[in-house]
Design a protein around this nucleic acid. Structure first.
Lengths: 224, 224
DNA sequence: ATCTTTCCCACCTAGGTGTGAACC
DNA sequence: ATGGTTCACACCTAGGTGGGAAAG
């Protein structure tokens, strides 16, 4: 009696998302969210900051998923694949090749989505957001992903069915999310887009607004 | 080749916590963390605020777990059981009965730990923290737990093995975590303890410090 | 010189505290 | 009048931004 009440609470985790499911996994579909935003960045060659302690990505990688078995267990993995063998540099407003890539490693480490493992129903009932993944240029303890600065990468998503025998169910890449890892922004158009769309950079958006409105910049006020 | 690299990343989730495991689950052990802190509150009769949008608990319920099957899947559930049939009131510095409990419901809803479901290894490798659970006195959408104000509750933890057939593995209660739900603190000793130990109430701790040091209180400074 | 990286910083987002007056 | 509840608020914790100087 008491136990059934508790067990039904667990069952409830499965209820949403059933209609999007397919026990056979014959047609798993993954689509990138906010593709328009990603495209704005890609048009001018996207950049992502890497720091010692790890920097979040912006835009944030978000996907919606259909076609999993709602009651089966899956983990979602993210890695970053070098898309060419170049080291890049930014000169005269252009990204140009600066010779061969530094190290032979073309694969980053693997980031496991923190909701993993979870039911197919869980992954399908809402957009899956990779907002916590952090990119670094140093070997670190935590779940950060190490990339080579000034190299080009493309995020790849993998869905693994978790069971006594793990099984790779799906591999997806999103060309629009390609970027060059940097330690500081090179293209000021990228900086402007980051400031415009990332809420955490609001401070710099305000400064611009006040400038263009003819007011005094925030930065100037601190000079005695 | 590529697949095995990804699958091994999933396997790595299982590595820690194996030594604390027991495939037979014959001796699952759960122990309350920070029991000394909980006892300080219990000594003066603990109170927890309930609000419309939900209020976190303080102290936070934290447990460490041994004896699960590291590679089996479990969900952790929390509910709140009314420990008597009284409605309580605080008069002259004492909690006294104020008649029978309001409603027949002696059980709260069930809170599912956000890491659920997960491997036994995951639950055993580190202290499990219920810091996100929110207590409310209204029927709400989200994962909040509804309690009756001025009624006494005891948190109960349940471990459910998640499989084709769910199975209740463990039920534990922690007498030291008993509390009375309130919409505003009644006993000023409880208020003082909350301020002393909850980092989010630091503002009021500072005010006290400055008072007792002979300085002006923060509160006074806002009066023109 | 030039290019890349590092560090500290002011400024945000996001949200958890008890307070005290207002409300019922 | 009384006792319980609600709300806006100042003040925190916690941590994500790019800037700009300094260092490699």
């Amino acid at each position: 009696r008491c136990a059934s009440r508790l067990l039904s609470a667990v069952e409830r985790q499965l209820q949403e998302g059933r209609e999007k499911g397919d026990p056979s996994e014959s047609s798993v579909r993954v689509s990138l969210e906010e593709a328009e935003l990603w495209r704005k960045f890609r048009e001018v060659t996207n950049e992502m900051i890497v720091t010692k302690s790890g920097r979040r990505m912006f835009p944030i990688l978000k996907v919606s998923i259909c076609g999993l078995d709602p009651s089966a267990m899956y983990s979602l993995l993210l890695d970053f694949v070098g898309t060419d063998s170049c080291r890049w540099k930014y000169v005269n407003g252009e990204w140009v090749s600066a010779g061969k890539a530094d190290s032979g490693r073309r694969q980053s480490g693997v980031y496991i989505h923190p909701d993993s493992p979870n039911f197919g129903a869980h992954w399908m009932k809402a957009v899956v957001t990779f907002n916590k993944v952090k990119l670094t240029n140093k070997v670190n303890g935590g779940g950060q992903i190490m990339l080579n600065s000034l190299h080009k990468y493309e995020p790849h998503l993998h869905i693994v069915r978790v069971a006594t025998n793990h099984r790779l169910v799906c591999n997806v890449s999103f060309p629009d999310t390609e970027f060059i890892a940097v330690t500081a922004y090179q293209n000021e158009e990228i900086t402007a887009l980051k400031i415009k769309y990332n809420p955490f950079a609001k401070a710099f958006l305000d400064a611009k607004d006040r400038n263009s409105a003819g007011g005094r910049s925030l930065m100037e006020t601190s000079e005695g």
